[in-house]
Write a protein that binds this DNA or RNA. Structure first.
Length: 270
DNA sequence: CTTACCGCCTGTCGGC
DNA sequence: TGCCGACAGGCGGTAA
């Protein structure tokens, strides 16, 4: 499941192959994604090259001089560069043929992903109201503290709300809460300033480490070149229900919080 | 305003 | 071994 580190890993993998490179053809094999792929996408993308590939939260922004393709990987989406000789795979829904000969292919079995077009991506409704980037300086524990006053929802749901901070999905929210020693069910408004400072630091740390290791591959995540990420071995709680806590040995518990399975240590997280 | 929940979709897994 | 239902989940949308 692509979260911020996986999207960033993808961005780094594909950017050098896309930037400044004319797109000579766009093929849409199945435009029935989360939203229909807009009719005009192919014409826009072939009009002028992508100048740079940017990331905002979990959105990839393929910026051209006249607009931006907004790409989201959803749950099961991936982008990979391939040789045009290589056969198209099942669920390769969008293909960009580059002047260099490479083909960028978007594969997405569950089709929760998206390809959209915007003149001004930062003003697009999906992007406009997003909170700060967790690796930017604007993201601090004090910000979390301020925004969480009077909130009764679980702190885990709070940090997964992308109006608060972007890019923190189910895996890394669980990991950051473990690292900070905060119980995921605790109401957001009942976490103090110092603990939010620790939580913000944990979020930055876990996301940063995951990026360095090329993301987490559970089943299907691959980077822009079809390779897995190696952060999975660093996970302390996610996917480890019933196993011993790495810190104290207590068996980890699993609970659904805000419709998401959540693993935590009752001893280390309060 | 906040919070809770639905549903999109397919692959995988456990139970029988 | 094969079938089937449950489950996974990012996230917008809607209802309360």
């Amino acid at each position: 499941m692509p979260e911020l580190p996986e999207v960033e890993t993808t961005r780094r993998g594909i950017a050098p192959y896309l930037e400044g490179q004319p797109i000579i053809q766009v093929r849409i094999h199945n435009g029935s994604l989360r939203w229909p792929v807009p009719q005009g996408l192919a014409a826009e993308l072939t009009r002028s090259p992508v100048q740079d590939v940017e990331r905002r939260g979990k959105y990839l922004l393929l910026n051209t001089d006249h607009g931006t393709a907004i790409v989201h990987l959803g749950m099961s989406g991936s982008l990979r560069l391939s040789d045009p000789e290589d056969e198209r795979r099942k669920h390769d829904h969008v293909e960009l043929a580059l002047a260099s000969g490479w083909v960028l292919r978007f594969n997405d079995p569950r089709r929760f992903g998206a390809w959209l077009w915007a003149r001004d991506a930062l003003q697009h409704p999906l992007i406009r109201d997003l909170g700060p980037e967790p690796l930017d300086e604007a993201f601090t524990g004090d910000l979390l503290y301020r925004l969480s006053r009077d909130r009764r929802a679980a702190v885990k749901a709070f940090i997964m709300d992308h109006r608060i901070v972007v890019g923190v999905g189910n895996i890394y929210a669980s990991e950051a809460l473990f690292m900070a020693g905060i119980h995921p069910s605790r109401p957001a408004g009942r976490v103090g300033r110092d603990r939010y400072r620790r939580l913000a630091a944990s979020i930055r740390e876990v996301l940063g480490a995951a990026i360095e290791q090329g993301g987490t591959t559970l089943r299907d995540f691959i980077n822009g070149h079809g390779e897995p990420g190696y952060f999975r071995q660093s996970l302390n709680v996610y996917g480890r229900a019933g196993e011993a806590c790495h810190r104290c040995g207590t068996p980890l518990r699993e609970r659904r919080i805000a419709q998401r399975s959540t693993v935590f240590c009752v001893h280390c997280q309060r």
